[in-house]
């Protein structure tokens, strides 16, 4: 066993995952800006960056495979590699959603009026999703599981908005049927951001698995007063 080599390989893996996380976080934030400002150029930039997301995903997959095959990590090292492997996949899918949203924005063809944005609660949805991704990013850097746990509560906010906005979308369509396609685009963005929330929650669970060796997946919230400490 070569612990120094193992440590440097693990650090490289962490750096790569952080780079991907940072990239995906930016993709999502740029998406919000592109939507708010109807910035087609920025939307195209997001689409162009998708290649970097895919490329980094492949690099991280290879890093994980090499670490498992060559170093046989155990205990906390094994949990880290397993978590990194799953987080990698979650990040790539968040990147896909950011890319799809950018395509909608580019296809939309005009700035969305403030009232519609307000009714569809897109800013609240985006702000919450961005906060979740920022939390897991910082939690990964600092290995702070309390911060990671905060995303569980935020995910509930996204789920709630997602449920409520379907009714609002129907009302908007009824009021102006000629805008049906555009409203459906916007509703698709809401749905994609809700999925971003689910994926970010998965990342938080993986971080907790790696740091605390606790499996939170598929567990129900134990009580209302535990501040998202369990799910």
């Amino acid at each position: 066993m070569a612990p120094q080599h193992l440590d440097s390989e693990l650090k490289l893996l962490k750096d790569n995952v952080l780079e991907l996380m940072f990239l995906v976080k930016n993709q999502l934030e740029k998406g919000q800006k592109a939507l708010d400002d109807f910035d087609e150029e920025l939307a195209h930039e997001i689409m162009a960056n998708e290649k970097r997301v895919d490329s980094l995903e492949l690099t991280i997959d290879r890093d994980c495979e090499n670490l498992l095959a060559l170093y046989n990590p155990v205990a906390v090292d094994l949990r880290f590699v397993m978590a990194a492997f799953k987080i990698n996949s979650d990040l790539e899918r968040i990147g896909d959603h950011a890319n799809s949203i950018a395509k909608y924005i580019a296809d939309f063809g005009r700035k969305i009026d403030e009232d519609t944005l307000e009714t569809m609660r897109l800013d609240k949805m985006y702000n919450t999703a961005n906060e979740m991704v920022s939390n897991v990013f910082n939690a990964f850097i600092t290995e702070d599981t309390d911060l990671a746990r905060k995303v569980f509560r935020l995910d509930k906010t996204l789920n709630k908005i997602n449920r409520e906005v379907s009714g609002a979308t129907a009302e908007l369509i009824e009021a102006d049927i000629s805008q049906t396609q555009n409203y459906l685009y916007l509703f698709s963005i809401i749905r994609k951001l809700e999925r971003v929330g689910d994926l970010t929650k998965n990342i938080a669970e993986e971080l907790i698995f790696y740091i605390e060796a606790k499996v939170l997946k598929h567990k129900k919230m134990k009580s209302k007063n535990n501040n998202g400490n369990d799910k």
Binding site: M1, A2, P3, L6, P73, V74, A75, V76, D77, L78, R79, A213
Partner: peptide, 17 residues
């Protein structure tokens, strides 16, 4: 022991540290 040992010393040994 090999996934989540109780003691830091065990973890350090099995991870080669």
């Amino acid at each position: 022991i090999f996934t989540n040992p109780e003691k830091d010393r065990t973890q350090n040994y099995i991870t080669g540290r």
